[in-house]
Design a protein around this nucleic acid. Structure first.
Lengths: 186, 186, 186, 186
DNA sequence: TATGAATGAGAATTCATTCAT
DNA sequence: TATGAATGAATTCTCATTCAT
């Protein structure tokens, strides 16, 4: 099962989503096409499982990065952890974002995604009192910025070494500007 | 020809890239499958033409938004113009980003993309003296932030009315933080 | 009309039967696809007309080659005339043989073919008294030998300059051997 | 796999090359269209495999026909064996000659073709000393005569019973005439 | 449970032919 | 009469999925 998922990951990395056929997955995983369907109901669920795996892996890293920090500092910690984590397999990250930008393909990854979302909402609420909707949009934007910048970098691979810092700056920049904007409204 | 491109756009909006078949495009365009190939050599070139159309439309808006401004002000003008433009057809924007994040699918859209890129590099160079590489990464990041936030919003459609402002804040935040970071390095 | 036929010929020569489309014929002939159908009921009738044209051209040469000769000498004269004639456009000959080995695609070329056939039967009958069936097979074989050797040579283009002599030898060889064989039977 | 090849053969025999579609092959073979592509990469490779099959079958017969003979006698033995072999499925032979007159469609049949070619060159060299080029043309001509006469007969089916003898006479006739012609040149 | 050959619906594309202008 | 855009049936080939072994 893990082999099948990893096979899908490797195919995405080496030749992209168009070549991701179930027969190819089976071949790379070293099993028969029929066996793949013993564990996965269909092709989409393999992709979903891969996304869930990646989300899971990240969750482990995520908590450590935030603890003992709060507010913007915690958010920056989070963004750097996410970026460093995804830098390990940039091509894969790129392909997964294109396949499922929201990470909600499976209920499992959707759940993990929500956990992360709640984590970030908590961080935001520690330092400012925003109504639910505003906090939600705030967090979504920050995730979108991170996702967008990773996607951009992984497409160009121009200056991958300082990507974590650049993303941190983008997040911090958004945070400080936006907190002001949101406060003004009240 | 325009009908075929618009048909592709509508299919992307209503049911996404998987249902974008050449037969479906022909049907929605109200022509026969054969007719599609009178104007387009293959399926990809329809998509490329659609992307080129969108890029073209945006270019018209783009110049107006920037003129008489400079520096950050110009960049914010640009980001708002882009966002407002893409807000007209958010679902389509989303699908096109997923199909071709770099806008380089066709030589024509690649050219327009480069024009926009040069426009932004000029804006950056007006206010700060950065070496070529740094300016390039700077501009790429800003485009990535915009792309990421649009993609995020169009997936959720939570608070679309203040998206231009939020993107402008993100761009401004990145700009001010990053100019400092880059200056420190010198 | 002649332009259309010649266009078909040229396409056969340059790129073979697979690329012989009606649209291509029209383009090479410098007319519109619709115009082609003013003169020809369908694609096959263009090919038939081309075959008829070639048969016709050859008939002109044919009579001259035979007159004042008789028997084997006349037959050799005929074979050399045919070979020299077809050597002018070997590629075309090759393609036409493959398209219609019997030259009976159209009633017109079938008629010319029969004329030639009768000519050769007369030649045979001048020197030997064979029953109709035997004479018929005799002539058919000679035509088949010529066709086969031309086809072979035009595929390889090895030694095209002495092809007429080689074919003449083959014809003469068949003639002399076969006359004996046929006589024995009686 | 053999079923698919035989299906192609039968279609060629009954209705010719225009009706030889991959769907029809699958239907006649009693399998699904997809199954055809399990064994053959594309349509052409089915045809090539059929040609290779025929060439292979003939090779088995070929050696026996020649052994213990030499010179013209061996060549006549060969020509009779070939003719008798192809007489088993004349319609198929006809269609295959039109599809691939040189038998070089596949590397496998090309190889077999070369084997046969070498066999015949050896036969020629046993009785006469010809330079390479002359021997090559000599053998090619003999093969062309056989091919041409089979093609002619299979089109008309006039007197199929004495075809082997007629072809043998044609070959013998060419041989004796041509050996003289070639010797004169020296 | 694992296999992998077989499936067959469906995709992209072609091209002989038509017909409104 | 000439045009050439439009047609649409037919073709090759793919691939997610199944099921007998």
């Amino acid at each position: 099962m893990a082999d099948v998922i990893e096979a899908a990951a490797r195919i995405l990395e080496t030749s992209g989503a168009e070549t991701l056929t179930t027969n190819m997955i089976a071949e790379v995983a070293g099993v028969s096409p029929g066996s793949v369907y013993q564990y996965f109901s269909d092709k989409q669920s393999i992709i979903s499982a891969l996304i869930a795996r990646e989300a899971h892996e990240f969750m482990k890293v995520s908590h450590d990065a935030i603890e003992e920090c709060s507010g913007l500092e915690a958010m920056i910690g989070f963004s750097k952890a996410l970026t460093l984590h995804r830098l390990q397999r940039p091509k894969l990250t790129l392909q997964l974002i294109l396949l499922d930008p929201t990470l909600t393909a499976s209920s499992e990854s959707a759940k993990i995604n929500e956990e992360i979302y709640n984590l970030l909402v908590d961080i935001v609420n520690e330092s400012s009192v925003l109504d639910d909707k505003t906090a939600s949009v705030f967090v979504m934007d920050i995730m979108a910025i991170m996702r967008g910048m990773m996607l951009g970098e992984f497409l160009n691979q121009d200056r991958i070494d300082d990507l974590p810092d650049r993303i941190a700056d983008a997040v911090a920049g958004y945070w400080s500007r936006r907190i002001q904007a949101v406060s003004k409204c009240d």
